[in-house]
Design a protein around this nucleic acid. Structure first.
Length: 589
RNA sequence: GGCUCCGUAGUUCAACUGGAUAGAAUAGCAGAUUUCGGCUCUGCUGGUUGGGGGUUCGAAUCCCUCCGGAGUCACCA
């Protein structure tokens, strides 16, 4: 690539002109408002050159223009040396990348290292909501991006299938359910179980209010409410493997899994392996002994086990309760080790909300202290909360947006907009339905993923499905329009090596050349937003080009072929990029 | 209260990890079509990057301080 070429040339130049070595050489893209393609920042060299920035830049520019054939001219603005690269270079680069199949994607080799990505990991007592959607989309997309960067990737989740939350749904169903099933009610399984979780909460609160009215303290009321005691009793029976409780637990969980499967399927996410907390909640206990032996952990008089992290600026953390049972941290330690045994991964990422930042900091530190050298390659893919135009989601206030409802709403909106625009003549009902699905979900996914994962974000359904602006549908539209050109051209374009290229075309080629590095960077940073922003930039550049450049019209057949080829490649990169976000792009819309 | 994170056009987001005159979208205004999908494109308006100090050739970015917001500080998960 040109940058490497220039890098060594600048090294030589610095050596030749100023006898300087080991300088940090940084290139950047030349900003739009200046002439040139690549810019060298010369400020760092002033110490060595002992000259002013302009003079230093001019001397370097002179040298590079003479010695590097691709550098056709240069200009200097303050301490910035702007280099222009010959048009033939860009054209030849395009011809090379045009021939590449799956351009930008690094094929996974036999000896590639393995990355684990954990995401979703829901509780089984209620359906998925808007927050889970961001989690799922992020996890899935990051996994696809890392895969595209040449790594072996496994997607996993840990399903929180046991504990007091599911027992609450169970007890409410037993008391008020009258043997309702998904079949008898027509409700999705996860929604049915969620209905009883809400039912539990309703009764629980009523009972608490009664107790408080009788003079019981608030704290005591929460502990003594009969329905809560029943839930705890069920939990105890479950732990004792009581057959009837176990059967009910399995039945209700299976309803939930059937429901989740539908949601995951529509969302387009998948998993290579599911872990279940009912299998893993006892894990990690043997590690406790290991930690005690090594002196990493210590035991208090009551038998509870702790780790002291005050030296690392954190606090003391419980590892094992005094009654010998595991806590969340213990399980997570055990599960991580188990996964390493299962997959021998080199890296693992956890897509979990940023309210657990502290937990993961501690988890990775403990794993490190226990001597697991892969602990330093564990990454908490921490993401911010999703807000709505109406404000924050609050389960108590019933303002939680259900994942299934939201997806349906997006698809319905896509349908009404598309029908209003009326460009679907001649499309069968089935094709049209598939298209609404692509547009509605594409809008949702693109909007959620274009924002830096770490940041809290605002999801505006209306804005997300706007057919203009920085949205999924706008990008899909551009792709569809290019496909229309390709259909008209009717054959594979063969690109000649001696066409004259326009400035706009050069800009597009430069952007296309950035695609592989963008994927790598997105993988390194676990950030689908980089892919989204890149794709949008490309689309914007292409639309500007398309607007005032005839692609198919003209006498010069080679020029037409080049322009078709360029358009084709832009469409391919759009498709690949959006694919990494889990967004499908239609050929017509 | 301790710790962590955040604060950028009216609004939603960027800014190549310390580089040039802080960019897009949207909203508002003004324009463009004998052309391949106008669901498009081109302009204009809009900023003391929460305030103040510091570090240096150079700060939205790093350090300090104040203001405002969020999260977290369970023998919960």
């Amino acid at each position: 690539m040109i940058e490497q070429l220039l890098h060594t040339a600048v090294e030589k130049a610095l050596q030749f002109l100023y006898l300087a070595e080991g300088q940090s050489i940084q290139f950047q893209k030349t900003r739009k408002d200046f002439d040139g393609d690549i810019t060298l920042v010369v400020f760092p060299f002033l110490r060595a050159s002992k000259k002013g920035p302009e003079q230093t830049a001019n001397e370097l520019g002179q040298y590079l223009q003479e010695k590097v054939a691709e550098v056709c001219c240069y200009n200097v603005v303050k301490g910035f040396l702007n280099l222009s690269i010959d048009k033939n270079y860009w054209l030849s680069q395009f011809i090379t990348l045009y021939k590449a199949e799956n351009y930008g994607i690094v094929k996974v080799s036999e000896d590639a290292s393995t990355y684990l990505v954990e995401y979703s990991s829901p509780n089984t007592n209620k359906p998925l909501h808007l927050g889970h959607i961001r989690n799922n989309l992020l996890g899935y997309s990051v996994a696809e991006i890392i895969k595209a960067s040449g790594k072996n990737v496994k997607k996993v989740q840990i399903i929180n299938d046991r504990g007091i939350h599911i027992c609450k749904s169970m007890v409410a169903w037993q008391l008020f359910g009258q043997d309702e099933t998904p079949e008898s009610t027509g409700l999705k399984g996860d929604h049915l179980v969620g209905k009883y979780y809400v039912e539990f909460d309703k009764h629980y609160r009523a009972e608490q209010a009664d107790l408080i009215a009788q003079g019981v303290s608030e704290e005591e009321a929460a502990k003594q409410a009969p329905i809560f005691l029943k839930a705890k009793e069920i939990l105890r029976q479950w732990e004792a493997k009581d057959p009837s409780v176990y059967a009910l637990w399995e039945k209700m969980n299976n309803w939930v899994y059937d429901g989740f499967a539908v949601t995951y399927d529509r969302l387009g996410v998948d998993f290579d392996k599911n872990y279940y907390e009912s299998n893993t909640y006892l894990l990690g206990k043997e590690v406790v002994q290991e930690g005690l032996d090594k002196g990493t952990f210590y035991q208090k008089e009551d038998g509870s086990v702790w780790i002291d992290l005050t030296a690392d600026g954190l606090d003391e953390k419980l590892i094992l309760r005094s009654d010998g049972t595991a806590v969340y941290m213990t399980q997570d330690i055990g599960t991580a080790i188990q996964r390493h045994d299962d997959f021998g991964f080199s890296n693992m990422a956890y897509a979990v909300g940023n309210e657990q930042d502290y937990h993961f900091k501690v988890l990775f530190l403990i794993l490190d202290k226990l001597g697991y050298n892969w602990a330093k390659n564990c990454y908490h893919l921490s993401y911010g909360m999703v807000d709505l135009p109406s404000g924050k989601m609050k389960s108590r206030e019933g303002t939680v947006v259900d994942a299934d409802d939201l997806m349906q709403e997006m698809v319905d909106t896509a349908q009404s907009i598309a029908q209003e625009l009326g460009k679907l003549d001649g499309m069968s009902g089935e094709e049209a339905d598939a298209l609404y699905e692509q547009i509605g979900l594409g809008a949702l996914k693109y909007f959620m993923l274009k924002v830096d994962p770490k940041k809290r974000m605002m999801f505006d359904p209306e804005e997300s499905i706007d057919f203009n602006g920085n949205t999924g549908p706008f990008i899909q539209y551009t792709h569809a329009r290019i496909q229309s050109i390709l259909r008209k051209y009717g054959k594979q374009a063969v690109c000649a090596s001696d066409v004259e290229i326009l400035d706009k075309e050069q800009e597009i080629i430069k952007l296309l050349l950035e695609f592989p590095a963008t994927i790598q960077e997105a993988a390194d940073q676990y950030s689908p937003a980089l892919i989204a922003n890149y794709t949008y930039d490309l689309v914007k550049e292409y639309n500007g080009y398309y607007q005032n450049t005839p692609i198919l019209v003209g006498d010069n057949k080679e020029q037409i072929a080049f322009r078709v080829a360029l358009s084709d490649k832009v469409a391919q990169v759009i498709k690949t990029g959006m694919g990494l976000l889990g967004v499908a792009v239609p050929n017509r819309m």
